[in-house]
């Protein structure tokens, strides 16, 4: 993966209004590979918990015979977390506030998956 392209893609995600941070996370380790997050977002905490969530939801999808995981949208009280599995065991994570255009963020995440593949 080209780091320059990765950071360009992260920047594109964070330019969407309402996005508080975006990161690329190693799915197996839960460690941050690259991040662009606002102050106040605990990148390492989000990365570790998001990777764990993605792994568990992936197993749930498998158990439900729903196929491979494509996109996860976790809506919380004042914000959301969006996850999209990428190539090479990576997960793209976006942390947003409650007024974000989820479709637009998803589109940028999808572009990033294609860019860094």
């Amino acid at each position: 993966m080209n780091p320059e392209r990765m950071y360009d893609a992260l920047d594109r995600i964070t330019r969407v209004r309402g996005v508080r941070g975006a990161m690329v996370v190693s799915a197996e380790d839960g460690l941050v590979v690259g991040e662009a997050v606002m102050e106040g977002v605990r990148g390492n905490a989000v990365a570790a918990l998001a990777a764990s969530l993605a792994a568990r939801l992936g197993r749930a999808a498998g158990a439900a015979e729903a196929g491979a995981q494509r996109f996860v949208h976790l809506q919380a009280e004042v914000g959301a977390m969006l996850l999209m599995p990428g190539a090479d065991g990576l997960v793209i994570v976006a942390v947003t506030d409650q007024h974000v255009n989820v479709g637009l963020v998803r589109l940028e995440m999808q572009r990033m998956v294609e860019d860094i593949a």
Binding site: D29, N44, A47, A48, L49, S52
Partner: peptide, 9 residues
Amino acid sequence: DTSIGLVQL
């Protein structure tokens, strides 16, 4: 069943 990220966190 866990990860280094979670352990560190």
